[in-house]
Simulated scan of single mutants.
Amino acid sequence: MAGSAGLTLRQRRLGVELRKLRDRAGLTSTAAAQLLGGPQARISNIEAGRYAVSADRVRALARHYSCTDAELVDALADMTGGRSRGWWDEYREYLPSALIDLAELEHYAAGLRVGLTIHIPALLQTTDHARALFREVVPALRQDEIEHRLSFRIRRQKILHEEPHIPYTAIIHEAALRMQFGGAEVSRAQLAHITEVSRLENVSVHVIPFEQGGFPGNGQPFDYVHGAVPQLDTVQLDVHHGCEFLDSEAQLIKYRTVLARMEAIALPEAASRDLIHRISRSI
């Protein structure tokens, strides 16, 4: 999904989904505008996320586009919700826009699943572990940049503890648990923190042990963010230049399959905690 300056990921996604509905209906933007009784530019701006659109207008467009999926229409109408600021907007001046988009995405998610092979999931990291990671960023971050990223990451983690409790599943390869970022003491504290958080009712942690051998996904770390309906799911990839967001049907199917295969070969929750404990004792 291409970015646009000044627009949030949620605004852009609503526009993208409305364009998909129009395309499926076989209508041009000019024809859609005529049905609304306005200029063609209005449809273009709505689909680009530049034009504020009400829930009633979204429902009207869905009717014009002969969309009979009531759950999808309700979910799209809920995405209008004005343009009120979230806590993440306080960081727009200091952090890359993709990180701001990720926090917004998590805030509105119906559920989260992550798959990682080298790093601990961001929502499960301790402050000391995260600080050690940020010190390895290339090019190097200034101290103030590290502190902004730290406070932002810790604020994101509140989503696991606040009401309503969002379902969160982390599938972590044993290799990530053995990486000693920050040294032995920091690593032991990090493993203890994962064990503690994994006991929350809404959190599940599964470990893929070394002896499992091969695993799907080629080691690509990713977050799978569940929307109100499956069509509104999003995949976030960690790449060298930052974050990349995917939302095409083919991409979503691919990563659902990868997650299912990873979870199938991972240890159950209790066995995963036992392995984490053994790793901690060996450090």
Rank of each mutant, 00 (worst) to 15 (best):
5 A>C: 03
10 R>Q: 09
11 Q>P: 14
13 R>S: 09
14 L>A: 05
14 L>Y: 06
16 V>R: 13
17 E>F: 10
21 L>F: 00
23 D>W: 02
25 A>Q: 01
28 T>L: 03
35 L>K: 07
38 G>Y: 01
38 G>V: 10
39 P>K: 00
40 Q>T: 02
41 A>Q: 09
44 S>C: 05
44 S>Q: 09
49 G>K: 08
50 R>V: 15
50 R>C: 07
50 R>Q: 15
51 Y>Q: 14
51 Y>A: 06
53 V>D: 08
54 S>M: 08
56 D>H: 08
58 V>T: 03
66 S>G: 00
66 S>V: 00
70 A>H: 04
71 E>D: 15
73 V>W: 02
85 R>F: 12
86 G>P: 04
89 D>N: 14
89 D>R: 08
90 E>A: 14
91 Y>A: 10
92 R>F: 13
96 P>M: 02
98 A>C: 11
108 Y>W: 09
110 A>Y: 05
111 G>S: 14
111 G>V: 11
113 R>S: 01
116 L>I: 02
117 T>N: 08
117 T>L: 01
119 H>G: 06
119 H>F: 15
120 I>N: 08
121 P>V: 09
122 A>Q: 14
125 Q>W: 11
125 Q>R: 11
126 T>F: 07
128 D>T: 05
129 H>F: 13
130 A>V: 05
134 F>S: 02
134 F>E: 01
137 V>M: 06
138 V>A: 04
139 P>E: 01
142 R>D: 06
143 Q>I: 00
145 E>G: 06
148 H>I: 03
148 H>A: 10
154 I>S: 06
154 I>V: 14
155 R>W: 00
155 R>T: 03
157 Q>P: 12
159 I>L: 15
160 L>H: 10
163 E>N: 07
164 P>T: 05
167 P>I: 08
167 P>N: 06
168 Y>G: 04
168 Y>V: 12
169 T>P: 00
176 A>H: 10
177 L>Y: 11
178 R>G: 13
179 M>G: 04
181 F>C: 01
182 G>V: 05
183 G>C: 03
184 A>S: 08
184 A>E: 07
191 L>F: 14
191 L>R: 14
193 H>Q: 11
195 T>W: 02
195 T>H: 08
196 E>L: 04
203 V>K: 08
203 V>Q: 10
206 H>R: 15
209 P>Q: 13
209 P>G: 11
211 E>D: 15
212 Q>C: 12
219 G>W: 07
223 D>I: 01
227 G>D: 05
230 P>N: 06
231 Q>E: 13
232 L>Q: 09
237 L>N: 07
239 V>T: 13
240 H>A: 05
245 F>I: 01
245 F>S: 02
245 F>A: 02
248 S>A: 10
249 E>A: 12
252 L>I: 14
255 Y>W: 04
256 R>F: 00
260 A>I: 01
261 R>E: 13
268 P>C: 13
268 P>S: 15
269 E>Q: 15
269 E>N: 09
273 R>T: 10
273 R>N: 15
276 I>V: 15
279 I>Y: 11
282 S>K: 14
